[in-house]
Amino acid sequence: MKILKVLTVAALASVGFAGASHAADSYKFAVVPKAMNNPFFDLTRDGCMAEAKKLGNVTCIYQGPVEHEPATQAQIIDDLITQGVDGLAISVSDAAAATTLINKAVDAGIAVITFDSDAADSKRAAYVGTNNKEFGKALGEELLKLKPEGGTYGMISGGAAAPNLAERVDGVREALKGSKWTEVPGSPTFCNDDVTLAVQQAGDLKTANPDIAAIVPVGGWPMFAPDGWKNFVEPFKADVESKKVALVVADTLPVQLQLLKDGYANALVGQRPYEMGEVAIQTLLKLKKGEKVEKIIYTGLDRVTAANVGEFLK
């Protein structure tokens, strides 16, 4: 009888151990950016990796196209589905292509959320990131604060099929509607997240419209090439400092904050990409545990000018 009791305790201990092991299942979550050569997404990667390390039972796989190529992103997502990852967080380059793949992943039992750029009509469980319409409106509002007298302006966007960027462009236009600002022909230009091309397009806007009063990139691309951006701004830097020409740019990466401090921009409106990475992992883990999550999780915006740039550089 005593032996039986020992065996029973051992069996219970074994069940308990198995239960603990199950509770601490390991998960592989993939974060798929639009482009891995975009420093904005480096911060999302860092947030993802830090949160995974903190949790201990999560591996963050950071994988996407080197450059902004929607077809390559689609292939990478398809490959990750085939590999059987536990969860996907996708910054959508092309909403139509991504929707098909997101639905395929969900049907295969993979938890899927979007971040930064959404595919709202897909089966994704949640979106984590910026309210992009409000982001665009904030850019327009900062421009109105700088130059309420208006003038002509041009925008630089990234991928033409990216839904988040289209919302930002709409937001800028909405903020400036009814003001004395008018958009130049050919705006927005599309740089496909190519930082060198974005700088070139800024120069093209200035050359084609010598009296242009503002340039508004709805992503930080041209400033991600700091030497190129400086070379672009230098010939009319005095006009920027006097606000004759306003440069209102999206994102607040450290390199951009320094450029703003040095007089190479007037205002920045920033997202929180690091937090996107953290929250993406937290959300995917909740989904795998069967917990409910909010459909829309906004990570907030920051507005930076010469008056408060020092605080952000700290």
Rank of each mutant, 00 (worst) to 15 (best):
F40I: 02
N209H: 14
A20P: 00
P163V: 10
A10K: 04
A267F: 11
D25Y: 09
D193T: 07
A97Y: 01
F236A: 07
V309H: 07
A214W: 12
V245D: 02
A166L: 15
F224T: 02
N38A: 11
Q282G: 01
L287Y: 05
A35R: 11
Y153G: 03
K104W: 03
D121C: 01
A108P: 04
Q63H: 05
R272Q: 12
D239E: 15
A125H: 14
P273T: 10
A50Y: 02
L165M: 12
R168Q: 13
T99Y: 01
N231W: 03
Q75G: 06
T72R: 15
N209S: 03
A175W: 10
V269A: 02
A214V: 12
S179G: 04
T207E: 07
A13S: 12
L253G: 03
N266D: 14
G178H: 13
Q200I: 09
F40E: 01
N192P: 02
A10S: 11
A306I: 15
F115R: 07
D46P: 00
A160F: 07
G203D: 10
V112N: 03
T82W: 00
I215D: 01
K28I: 12
A13P: 00
Q271T: 13
V58D: 04
T182I: 11
Y62F: 15
A20I: 13
L43W: 06
K5L: 10
A97V: 03
G109L: 06
V309G: 06
T252I: 11
P226W: 05
K147C: 04
F224I: 00
D79C: 01
V279W: 08
Y127K: 05
M276E: 15
A111K: 10
K34C: 03
D79A: 13
P226D: 00
R124N: 05
L143Q: 12
V269N: 06
C60R: 14
P185M: 05
K54C: 00
L101C: 04
F41R: 12
W229S: 00
Q75T: 15
S122P: 09
K177F: 06
C191I: 02
V249Y: 03
G64N: 09
S14T: 14
L301C: 06
G87K: 04
A138D: 10
V6L: 11
L301S: 05
W229Q: 02
V279A: 01
P185V: 06
I297P: 01
E241H: 01
A71K: 08
A119R: 00
V58A: 05
V233R: 08
E294T: 07
L143R: 13
L287I: 14
V106T: 14
Q282T: 14
F29E: 06
E183I: 13
